[in-house]
């Protein structure tokens, strides 16, 4: 879980940096060129396949873990304990499932459309014809229901990361009196800032487009 999780944490950063181009004030040119590059570069494609694989692996391992752990626990207590553990750490499987559902929605909106969709908006920069991904994104995000769905998804992600980031290091045995507090601080900052960074996008688009 920890290795795949850390890979996905890295991926999120890259994904966020790319997506932040949605904010550039050029009617989506930079974003579209970026998207086109990402979907045609063979190396990126290979990494993308790896990424899908890790997501699936992370999910499958998570499910197996949850099932094994549920069996190991047997029955639950009648009173839920009021102790000092975080809500997120107790609900990683639930959060993971929600994130998976969110991913399906996300992929349905974009990846599936770009691969198999028809009547996609196109755009031409300096004679190169490419999908107008920017237009696609703005169409989705300007609908309140999807905008809210994305925000909820990112909130869930934030909780998942709140536990997941530092936990990955603990699972790998990377713990040290000096460095662990730094890792924990980083993890908390990451789990707030990265989802927040993503959340700016639908909000920005929603409020600038409508």
């Amino acid at each position: 879980m920890s290795l795949t999780g850390l890979f996905l944490i890295l991926f999120l950063v890259v994904h966020l940096i790319g997506n932040l181009q949605l904010l550039s004030n050029d009617e989506g040119k930079a974003f579209n060129i970026y998207t086109d590059f990402m979907s045609h570069n063979p190396v990126i494609q290979l990494i993308a396949k790896g990424n899908y694989f890790f997501i699936l692996l992370h999910a499958i391992m998570g499910i197996l873990l949850a099932v094994k752990n549920k069996n190991a626990k047997g029955s639950k207590y009648a009173v839920s304990p009021n102790n000092k553990t975080s809500w997120a750490s107790n609900n990683m499987a639930l959060l993971g499932t929600l994130i998976f559902a969110f991913l399906l929605m996300h992929m349905g909106h974009f990846w599936f459309q770009f691969k198999w969709g028809s009547g996609l908006p196109m755009v031409n920069y300096d004679g190169v014809e490419m999908i107008n991904a920017y237009a696609k994104v703005t169409t989705v995000m300007s609908q309140p229901i999807w905008m809210v769905a994305y925000l909820i998804g990112l909130l869930v992600l934030a909780f998942h990361l709140w536990h997941g980031f530092a936990s990955a290091f603990q699972s790998l045995g990377l713990r040290h009196k000096k460095y662990t507090p730094i890792i924990e601080g980083l993890g908390k900052a990451y789990s707030i800032l990265v989802p927040l960074g993503f959340a700016i996008l639908p909000l920005y688009i929603f409020f600038t487009q409508s």
Binding site: M1, L65, K68, N69, N71, A72, K73, P81, N83, K84, T85, S86, S89, N90, M92, H163, A166, S167, Q170, S171
Partner: peptide
Amino acid sequence: EGFGFCSNIGA
């Protein structure tokens, strides 16, 4: 023995 895996909850 059938104990579960650790997910670092900390309880």
